[in-house]
Design a protein around this nucleic acid. Structure first.
Length: 214
DNA sequence: GCCAACGTTGGC
DNA sequence: GCCAACGTTGGC
């Protein structure tokens, strides 16, 4: 579920209402999400996706990299396949216009490849109801869907690819003597596929674009 | 391909 | 509600 967003049928025209569906404790979780990333008013995100195809349950699962997003109609896609509650709650907290890093995971060179923005807020993930989808969830009911997606639109590639290894060097240094990447979720919340960044983290990562690879 | 980290499931 | 077994994520 990592990333797993497949290119699929992009339905940008759908008029699904922007209902934020959710269980009873949803507002609590949202509050938690808000707390996790500090300032509620300026939010930044990092979203992981696997750019390379891979075998899953004996089927070749089409993966989705930033080039795939770029190739979509309107360069827009729905971010489906998230199957982790914490990541889902972050999806549900996203607002139109907020920016996110497109992170390539589980590949030769993991790292940040580009920027995208949220263009449609959370609505039910259609793949949870599709038998045969690797993301099918038989326990999810149509009248109370468990999983959500948002629509994202390509903004641009980063001026250069920013490898995980490089971010890690900064994280380690900042951890030792203070700095913006000290608590970056990429390292402190290892397996979270959708995660918030503070403005400080976001700005620092962007500043690396103009620096020589370290 | 290996395996550490960690989320989920299910027996009790 | 505890916790061992199991499955998945994702770097290396």
């Amino acid at each position: 579920m990592p990333s797993g967003k497949r290119t699929k049928a992009m339905k940008t025209e759908t008029s699904d209402k922007l209902v934020v569906e959710g269980g009873p404790s949803d507002s609590t979780k949202k509050a938690q999400a808000a707390k996790d990333c500090g300032n509620e008013s300026s939010r930044y995100w990092l979203m992981k996706s696997e750019p390379e195809s891979r075998m899953e349950k004996g089927v070749d699962v089409k993966q989705f990299g930033i080039e795939d997003l770029k190739a979509q109609p309107k360069q827009t896609a729905c971010w489906d396949g998230v199957r982790n509650y914490q990541a889902r709650n972050f999806l549900r907290a996203m607002k139109v216009g907020e920016e996110a890093f497109f992170y390539h995971s589980n590949c030769k060179e993991p790292g940040i490849a580009g920027l995208m923005k949220i263009v449609k807020e959370a609505y039910p993930d259609h793949t949870q109801f599709e038998k045969g989808s690797p993301h099918y969830d038989p326990s999810s009911k149509k009248d109370n869907p468990k999983w959500s997606v948002v629509d994202v639109q390509f903004i641009r590639m980063t001026k250069r690819f920013i490898p995980l290894a490089e971010l890690k060097v900064h994280h380690q240094a900042h951890k030792a003597s203070g700095g913006p990447l000290e608590n970056m979720a990429l390292f402190t919340r290892q397996r979270l596929s959708v995660q918030p960044l503070t403005k400080g983290e976001f700005d620092f990562v962007l500043s690396l674009e103009d620096k020589k690879p370290s």
